[in-house]
């Protein structure tokens, strides 16, 4: 299999973005490889109802 890419004209008027956050990337350009990973944890156990207890220290 041969994968042949022809990059012709690419012209963008305007880009409007509210936020780029949490290891995100906005790239105006080319790249060979890109790898993105995200872990987001909000389990029911993370809701702690009760008397205030500080979190464990380092």
């Amino acid at each position: 299999m041969n994968f042949h890419v022809y990059n012709r004209d690419l012209s963008v008027g305007s880009i409007r973005i509210i936020g780029v956050s949490s290891s995100s990337i906005l790239m105006i350009g080319d790249t060979q490889t890109i790898q993105l990973a995200s872990v987001f944890d909000t389990p029911p156990e993370s809701l702690i109802i009760g008397p205030f207890v500080p979190l464990a220290r380092e």
Binding site: V20, S21, S22, S23, S24, I25, L26, M27, I28, G29, D30, T31, Q32, T33, I34, Q35, L36, A37, S38, V39, F40, D41
Partner: peptide, 18 residues
């Protein structure tokens, strides 16, 4: 730890844990 990049690159690898 986000990036706004004008230009090309070779390898991009981003990770976040919340």
């Amino acid at each position: 730890a986000s990036v706004v990049h004008i230009g090309s690159s070779n390898h991009v690898s981003m990770e976040t844990r919340i």
